[in-house]
Design a protein around this nucleic acid. Structure first.
Lengths: 196, 196
DNA sequence: GTCTATAAGAGGATAGAC
DNA sequence: GTCTATCCTCTTATAGAC
C-alpha cells in the first residue's frame, strides 16, 4: 500500500514538473492531484526538494532501463545507441513526462547534491553515455575534436530543449516529425553537409 | 533624470534575471540593488512582468543593433551573419547579461504577449534572422531540409543554452573556448564530418 | 517621486486529534 | 497515516505622508 501511494505521488510530481516546472509547482497542487491532504504527503516525503528528487530518480531509472536494452542489442553502433537515447528523451518530453528542474535554484541543487540515490543514478547514466561517446569518437563517427563532456552535456540539454515544446505548441507538425528535425539538427548540425 | 533612473532599474533587472531567473528574482531584490524603496520602483514599472518586459526590450535592442552592423558589412555571407549572431548571444550569456524567462510561466507569457514594444522588437529580430536563414538555405550553406522556423527557434534556444553555464561552472575552460565548442556543435553537429 | 508602513495572499511546513 | 486547522515566512502590490 505504501509503495502504491508513493508511486501515485511521484507520478503526480513528475507530471507537474513537466508541465509547470519546479518553481511554479506547489505542494498543494501535488496533494490535490493525488487526492490526499498536504500533511499526509509530508509523511511520505520530507520536503518539496525531496519530491523533485524522487521524480528525477524515477525518470533516471527509466532512462537506465532504456539504455540497458540498447546495450544488449549487439547490432547497434555506439552512435546508434546515442541517437536512440536522444530520441527516447525527446519522446518522453513531448509525452509530458520529462520533469524539468531549474538550473538556477540553488536550494534545490544543494538538496539534490546531497541525495545519494539521485546521484548514483545520474553518475550511472553519465558513465554509460560517456563510454558510448568515447567509443563513437574513437571510431570516427562522432566529432573527436569536441571534448566528451561537451557532447554529454549537450545530450542532457537536448532532453529538455524548449524547441520541442515551441514546435509542438504551433500545432502544425506531428511529434515524430518534430523529433526528427531536432534530432537531426543536434547530430548533423544546422549547416548543409557536402554531398556524398 | 527619469530616464537615468529607469535605466538603472532595467540594468538591475537584467542582471538578476540572468543570475536567478524570473521566478526566483524578487522585486525587493531589484529595489535593493538599485538602492531605492520598492514603492518607488512601482512608480516606474507597474508590475514584475513589466520589469521583465523592459529587460527583454533592452536585450532585443542590443541584438538588433548588433545585427544592424552585420547587415551593413557586405563582405559577410548570410551564414557568417548567423554565426556571428549566435556567437554574440553566447558572449552575452557568459557575461551574465542574458535575461532568461521561463517558458512555462503563463502569467508572464500573457503579459509579454500584450506588450507591444516587446513584440515589435521580437518580430523585427525574427524577420531579420529569418531572411538570413532563407538566404543561407537558398545558397546551400544551411540545411534546406530543415524548416526555417526550426532553425530560427534553435538559434533562439542556443542563446540561453544551459550547456554554456555548466561548462563555465566547471572552471576548466575560457569563455571563448566554451563558445567555440557550443557554436560548432550547433552549426556542424555532434557527428564527425566526412573529410574534405 | 521618494519614503515608511502595511495590506493581502500564496506557499512550505507542522501540530495534534483520530 | 490520514485528516483539519494553523503557523510563519516570503512576496507582490498599495496607502498615505512628505
Amino acid at each position: 500500500m505504501l509503495r502504491v501511494r508513493e508511486d501515485a505521488i511521484v507520478t503526480a510530481v513528475n507530471r507537474l514538473l513537466a508541465e509547470k516546472g519546479y518553481d511554479l509547482m506547489t505542494v498543494d497542487e501535488v496533494a490535490a492531484e493525488v487526492g490526499i491532504a498536504k500533511a499526509s504527503l509530508y509523511k511520505h516525503f520530507s520536503s518539496k526538494e525531496a519530491l523533485a528528487g524522487a521524480a528525477m530518480i524515477r525518470v533516471l531509472d527509466r532512462a537506465l532501463a532504456h539504455t540497458d536494452g540498447l546495450e544488449r542489442d549487439a547490432t547497434l553502433t555506439p552512435l546508434a545507441r546515442l541517437h536512440a537515447t536522444a530520441r527516447w528523451t525527446m519522446q518522453v518530453q513531448l509525452a509530458g513526462e520529462m520533469p524539468s528542474l531549474p538550473a538556477q535554484n540553488s536550494a534545490l541543487r544543494t538538496a539534490l547534491s546531497a541525495n545519494r540515490d539521485y546521484l548514483d543514478r545520474l553518475f550511472a547514466l553519465s558513465d554509460r553515455l560517456g563510454a558510448w561517446i568515447e567509443a563513437a569518437q574513437d571510431s570516427g563517427a562522432l566529432d573527436a575534436t569536441l571534448p566528451a563532456e561537451v557532447v554529454l552535456y549537450t545530450l542532457f540539454a537536448r532532453a529538455c530543449d524548449p524547441v520541442l515544446g515551441v514546435l509542438k505548441a504551433g500545432g502544425q507538425h506531428t511529434d515524430e516529425q518534430i523529433i526528427d528535425w531536432v534530432l537531426r539538427s543536434c547530430f548533423r548540425g544546422l549547416e548543409a553537409r557536402p554531398p556524398g
